[in-house]
Amino acid sequence: MNRVRNPFNALFNEVSSVQEEVSRLFGRANPFTHAAPAGPPLNVWEDDQALYVEADLPGLDPAALDVTVTEGNQLTIQGERAAPDIKGAVWVRQERPIGRFSRAVTLPALVDADKVEAVYTDGVLKLTLPKHEAAKPRKVQVKSGQ
């Protein structure tokens, strides 16, 4: 990262990268600043009934999002983010990824693909994937023997 202020491009400079250095020290650096991401970053939770997947996908048209579950545990999220279309604009800085992306993960449990729900709010895709009956925890009654 170039930390020297370039006098020929002083229109919109980052003020301080101290925070970035501190972040790096504590392992909190934004991992997406330098590498083009292979797909959206995911967070996954579970409870007894379902798996919950959230993906950061800011600035997308929900209609351009494609979520599929195959074989009960293969989740694929695909889509495309368009470049900002502003007439006569010149780029000063470009960090936000554009174009097609695809992310495929193997879920840790079988889910009921017919009952998957997807909601897109505030740039976050939230999936609720109800677990397949076979994957739900079952309480086993222990009988007392003689």
Binding site: S23, R28, N30, T33, A89, V90, V92, R93
Partner: peptide, 17 residues
């Protein structure tokens, strides 16, 4: 934790975006 958001900056005749 605090992270730096990814940012685009564009310039047109009349404004920065």
């Amino acid at each position: 934790a605090t992270v730096a958001p990814r940012v685009d900056v564009l310039e047109t005749e009349n404004e920065f975006l």
